[in-house]
Design a protein around this nucleic acid. Structure first.
Lengths: 343, 343
DNA sequence: GGTCCGAAGGTGAGCGCTAACATAGCCCAC
DNA sequence: GTGGGCTATGTTAGCGCTCACCTTCGGACC
């Protein structure tokens, strides 16, 4: 055992110069190979690749970020919830971004108010993220976006079409309209609505669609039953509605609310759909196994995620910056919770 | 308008030297203030702070990462699912990490096999993350962890207690044991089990707990009904069980399976709990509104998240590296889906 | 009054990479 | 055969920070 240098050192990870030395080229050529530049001879490229392999070299992203001012990181600002919509959206986005070679840094905000969102966005900017996605389902969250400099690529999901420069969202109004029409078409004179939290844009859109459908049909517009997104709130709302004999059709702003409504109706001996028809929104995977299986409205969250990523990448690279919006229409999924009203 | 320098430039973001110049100190002193070093006069500190404020200076994390070799980023490897457990865990972890001043980079893996997990871990290492959390609910996912060098702080969640160096998990076996005991205590002669996917450690643990409870009670151990985690699979399993008159008690490996079972029993005219009692696992927020409200087992995902963060931070800073494990015991939540068997 | 010490702050190098420019070699046209 | 324009590669200068080391200065102590 000779006392060579390989002994005690903490074996610093190999850097570009190490690869260069082994391959007998300059570090710049290594950089060119790594970044797929043209003007590198095939033979050289192979030599560099081999050296990279041999040393187990991995480029240091921090160094690259420092010099370019841009990281391969995408920032996401998301509400601290496990609601099905945001959760599936996030998972799909993370998967798609990963496939596109980006990492996703998620910042959760406890409340969706202006300062919290702004702070989360600033945090991402500190990290030199390449772009930011803001899941901004409330009006106040959208206000926070006004303060972001235009050179930062931002895409809003579930945001305010009136405000955001780039936006991907589900057409809540169309979904609610379809749900309400469906109930009306089954013969109900009107449809009651259990809504989501009033400061959520999604909830507001669903109220609008419901109301428009009723008005167009010349049906009475009953008062909205306010709730949050939980089954518990749906249950409370359902207990009210179950007491009123004239209620024969309910459109709940999401499936969990609908579940609570279903439960309350069941408890009060009002069978669904025989006496009361119910429609939800979201099509959570369990909706088909509710009692009865729930007719609901399905947004395509995967598509929202991929559209969001595409839009963001376009802004990052192309610098396209017009007020683009992608609004995806959800589809009605018919199951067994809707039928004609009792005669 | 004098032709001064403030005109056309793209206004490079202020760096440490800019702050230093304005405050009349060296860049090093600015660094000391930023990092809370001692040996800075209060007056100087204030001057620097003011300069930072005035310029709107924000430190460049990439530069810091480059020189220190460590970022303020935590990497998470998570399965591509919207299952309630992982989703709540992730949300809680992101929130807690954010509060501790860390960003969280999430890498989703489509399948939980060895190469996928290994690739995701490597990806995080490329980013020089300070630590990594691996949500590794399958045996093969755990194998991938063997290849990770010991100097990288890694904490496993839902991993294999036999393998992982640092681990936080829920005591699946204890939860399943409690659920099964509860059914037995209600008077059932035995309990049938609808299990999760067999390669999931969680599922295996629940099978063990169920089996142990039966064996200890001297009850017959019926064959496991295999399923995945979905309500659809629960429904299929339930259709089998509903046909067998001797089935009076079912323990489902999670609440969504239980929902499917409930639905199947209902369809076959076997009322729950009058004829068949059912217990779930997870306590999803909707479980209280199933028909009937579901008795289930509740793990504390928030606590799993905070324990995971604490453990990870301890490894990052302290370098503590023994095979620490935190195993949290879930609690049984009694509702209305369990009663004595029909006589 | 000299010595030592610690507090407060400065200086210079370098982390690993990319961008911009410089250079060498080659082929082709005239 | 010489200039021009390629292509392939090297050289140099930072990006914005932290680390290791150095300097200065004001006392405490004998």
């Amino acid at each position: 055992m000779e006392g060579t240098s390989q002994g005690g050192q903490a074996a610093r990870a190999p850097a570009m110069t190490d690869v260069a030395r082994l391959a007998g080229v300059s570090h710049q050529t290594v950089s060119r190979v790594l970044n797929g530049h043209p003007n590198v001879r095939e033979q050289t490229r192979l030599r560099v690749r081999a050296a990279i392999e041999e040393l187990g070299y991995r480029p240091n992203r921090a160094a690259r970020t420092l010099v370019t001012g841009r990281s391969q990181l995408l920032g996401v600002v998301a509400p601290n919830s496990t609601l099905f919509g945001p959760a599936s959206l996030l998972a799909a986005f993370e998967l798609a971004a990963g496939a596109a070679g980006f990492s996703v840094s998620v910042r959760r905000v406890r409340v969706l108010d202006q300062p919290s969102i702004a702070a989360a966005v600033e945090h991402h900017r500190d990290q030199r993220v390449a772009g930011i996605v803001v899941i901004a389902p409330t009006a106040s969250a959208n206000e926070a976006l006004a303060g972001v400099p235009a050179e930062v690529p931002v895409v809003t999901v579930d945001g305010d079409p009136e405000r955001s420069a780039a936006l991907v969202t589900v057409d809540q109004e169309a979904g609610a309209y379809a749900a309400t029409r469906h109930l009306l078409a089954a013969g109900h004179r009107t449809v009651w609505h259990v809504s989501g939290p009033s400061d959520w844009l999604d909830a507001a859109g669903r109220v609008r669609g419901w109301q428009r459908a009723l008005e167009e049909a010349g049906a009475e517009v009953p008062p909205v039953t306010p709730a949050d997104w939980s089954a518990a709130a749906g249950h409370r709302a359902g207990q009210m509605l179950a007491r009123m004999p004239e209620v024969t059709a309910v459109f709940a702003a999401n499936d969990h609310l609908a579940l609570g409504v279903l439960r309350a109706l069941n408890e009060r001996g009002r069978p669904v759909p025989a006496e009361v028809s119910v429609v939800g929104f979201d099509d959570v995977p369990e909706a088909a196994y509710f009692t009865p299986p729930l007719t609901t409205v399905r947004p395509d969250f995967d598509q929202v995620a991929t559209e969001t990523l595409n839009l963001l990448l376009k802004r990052i690279t192309g610098g396209e910056s017009g007020p683009v919006r992608r609004i995806l229409t959800p589809v009605l999924v018919e199951r067994e919770s809707v039928t004609a009203p009792p005669r």
